[in-house]
Structure formats: C-alpha cells, structure tokens
Design a protein around this nucleic acid. Structure first.
Lengths: 229, 229
DNA sequence: TAACCACCTTGATATAGATCAAGTTTTATA
DNA sequence: TATAAAACTTGATCTATATCAAGGTGGTTA
C-alpha cells in the first residue's frame, strides 16, 4: 500500500509492542511488520487452528473475535477498536483459537513474535508481559459485566467501555460510530437482540443517549456511568 | 515450616515459572521463593490495591479470587487448585485487583517477579508469556461457559473443568472433593444457590453424578461431557 | 453428647428477559 | 435511483431461573 505510516511516527507507539524498541531497531523489522495490511468488511484476519505466531495491532477500524460451537452458533468473545493489540491468547499454543473478522474497512499491523523474542530487542518482553496481564484483567472485567447483571447494566457498561476506550485514543468521548450491529452487541453481552433494542429505546426515552444511524450520542454521561456501576 | 519440598523436586516443576531455570540457578532464589507458605481456611493471600510484585503457585489446597462491588456484593472470578499459578492480572499495575482467599488449608509458593525479570534467568520470560497467554484463553473459556448457556450446561461444564484439571495434576478424574460451597459455585456461575442445588439433585437422579458429603463421584463422564459441550 | 450454625435441599411463586410475530428503517446492490 | 436484503423496533406471550419460604443435614465446639 502507498504511503504507510512508519512505526516511529505511528500514533500507536505507546501501546504497540515495538514501543520497547529504539528507533534504530525499527528498521530491523521486516516489511510485513512495518506496514499495515488493509482488510475490508467481513474479511477474516485469522481463523481457529490456523498457525499463528504474530500479534496484530489495530491501527484503524474494528474487528470482532468469535467462536462457533458444535451446533453452528456464533459467540462473540471480544470487539477491538483502534489501539488494540489482538491475538495474545494464541501465544500459548501457536495457533488461533477464535475467528477474527473485520467489522468495517480496517488497517492492522502484523507483529511477528520471533522478532520480539530475539535477544537484541531488550525491554520488549516486559512490555509484552504487561500487555498480556492487562488483557487478563480486561477479560475479568467483561466477565463481571455479564455475570449477575441486568440487561440495562450490561448495555450501559458496554457503551461506557467503548466511550472510555475511544477517549483514551484521542476520539470524542460522547459521540462516536458504533461499528457493530445490535445483534452483535446482544450476542457479546449474552442478551437477545430485542432486549438490546429495548434498552437502547429506553435510554433514548430517558434522554441519556441518542442515535442517528450508527452514530451514538451520550447525552447524560454521569447517569450512564451510574447505571453501569 | 519443616521439611519444605525443594523446587527441583517439586511436582509443579513443569508448570511453575521457575521451570525455565537450570538447577544451579534455583539456589539463587531467596528463601520466600523456595519455601511454601501455609494458609488456613479463610486466610487472605492478597487483597485489592495491595502492592503485589509476585505470583503465587498453589502447591496444595484451593483458593478463590473475588471482587466486592460498591454495594458489598461478592463476585467470584476464579477458583484455583493445586498446580495453578495466580496473580497474573496484577503484573500490569503492580497491585492486586481481587481478594484471594484460601478455601481450605493450602500451601502457596511466592514467586517474586524481579527475580524472573533478572537478565541471567533466561528462558523464563517466554515461559511466563505462555502462561499468561494460556490464562487469557482460560478466562475466555469461562466466559463462554457462562454467557448464553443453561444452568445445567454451566454446572456440567464446571464439574468437567474441575475433573480435567485434577486429572492433569495426577488426581482421580471421577472422584474428588469439592472444596467450595454451593453458594460459591452459584456465585461463580452467575446462578442462584437453589438453582445449583436443583441441578445437582437432577444430575444425581439421572445417575450421572453422586455425592457423599463434599465428595463428588462422576458416574457417567460421557453424559456429563455431552451436557457440558 | 448436645446444640448451634452454616450449608444444603425442596416447594411455591414471581419476573426479567427469551421467543415469536409483524412491521419499519437503513443499507447494499443492480 | 430502484429494489432487495439486512438490521432494527415494538408488541404479545412464554419460560428458565430468581426469589421467597421452610425444613433438613452435617460439622464444629463446649
């Protein structure tokens, strides 16, 4: 692709794993690690059991990770937006464990693990360790949001989570595009689509949020946070 | 404590993080890292926000990790038995994020992170990374077991999970002690105690399991596995 | 051994959210 | 731009599991 953003100019430097590298070392990364790959909506980044010895950094766009059980039912385990690193659960066995699919046109950088493991790339391991540790915490948080909570709490917490993430990555906190369908949100939160739709309607009626197409406006962030608690 | 088992004789060598160390390096571990600490029932291993720069290996017994939300409600996030390493989610910020409490008399080894990070302990980082990656996968699995599943599926899957874990650590696959109460199981699975009790009764009536005090017998492993699917 | 207490079980009832159904709006495609 | 398909919404009904209630069991301590 033309005009790729170099790692040392990338907005993701602080979160991307190669951040532990000094500038001179970035040149040692091979081309596929330096340049983002473009995925169109519904393109698959990886599939279960596929050998995988890389992480991927989401430079732009969004992806969803999901499993498909024995009777063909999809279960979404995570959504990832700009600034996320994905594929961490594959390190332990060198193979993908979920499907990972682009929800819209997205750019992802591949980060090859053998490069990170090379001895001369000091400081990376510790960074990477923190990243994985943080992800374990995030998985726990999502679990806590789904177990023993009402539909309204789950949806409120989901929206707040997106809002916080986007804000941390320089986007608006109270106005953003929802890249996933209601069906996907419902699946992710363990609810029926109809229930999610009803919660959205109810939040709109209370003037806590508003929507225009896929744009979401948070009108009463404090109330929403309260609900999410 | 008298007669501690040395790391190089420990049954947990293959899973414990210091496994990456050669024998001569084990002597470099300080005393607290070499000798297990004994916890009695209800003793706290760590509490939220407490500075934590160690992992803990469960050499024997069992612990539960839980959070307490703003209105005082406990939510169990994980149970850990012999062979588990705990505290991984604390690496990212150097502080515990949950309570960790012994469910019975238990022995835990403290593994200090700064020892693992020391350069001369090569091979450890990669091991540790695999361990964390595996834990992310486990968290996903637990989430999948709780979201969009029936009470019977959750309980069946929970029992199978325990059975598999114990078998992997040299214990009987079909006869073992449940160290946690029904209330704790219910909380962990996002169910009411009464529901868990009813599922146990129903499984007993179908001759799939049996119980005698806190001992659980799996009489029809195949059927149970089928239910768990 | 008694007696207390935590834990467990079973039954009756209530309810949050699933499912079923039908229409509306938005998005994609020719 | 027209048309089809996908996504979303709202209403009616059903159901799995929560909640409420009460009794039973086993384990611990004096």
């Amino acid at each position: 692709m033309r005009n790729p953003i170099q790692c040392n100019q990338c907005s993701m430097q602080s979160i991307c794993v190669p951040a532990g590298l000094v500038s001179s070392e970035i040149d040692k990364l091979d081309k596929s690690s330096r340049e983002p790959h473009v995925y169109s909506k519904r393109d698959m980044v990886y599939s279960p059991d596929q050998p995988l010895h890389s992480l991927f950094a989401v430079k732009s766009g969004s992806v969803k990770c999901y499993t498909i059980d024995s009777d063909g039912k999809q279960q979404i385990t995570s959504f990832h937006l700009t600034g996320d690193i994905i594929g961490m659960e594959s390190i332990s066995n060198g193979a993908a464990v979920t499907y990972c699919e682009a929800m819209e046109t997205s750019m992802l950088c591949e980060i090859k693990l053998n490069r990170l493991f090379a001895q001369n790339f000091t400081g990376v391991d510790k960074n990477l360790l923190r990243l994985l540790s943080h992800r374990i915490g995030q998985r726990n948080t999502h679990y806590l949001n789904v177990v023993n909570t009402t539909a309204e709490q789950r949806v409120a917490s989901f929206i707040m989570g997106l809002s916080d993430h986007l804000y941390e990555h320089g986007f608006s906190r109270n106005e953003f595009k929802l890249p996933m369908t209601r069906t996907d949100i419902a699946n992710y939160l363990g609810l029926a689509v109809e229930t999610v739709s009803r919660v959205f309607s109810s939040l709109k009626q209370k003037d806590i949020i508003d929507t225009k197409q896929s744009i979401l406006f948070i009108q009463a962030p404090a109330e929403l946070k309260q609900m999410a608690s």
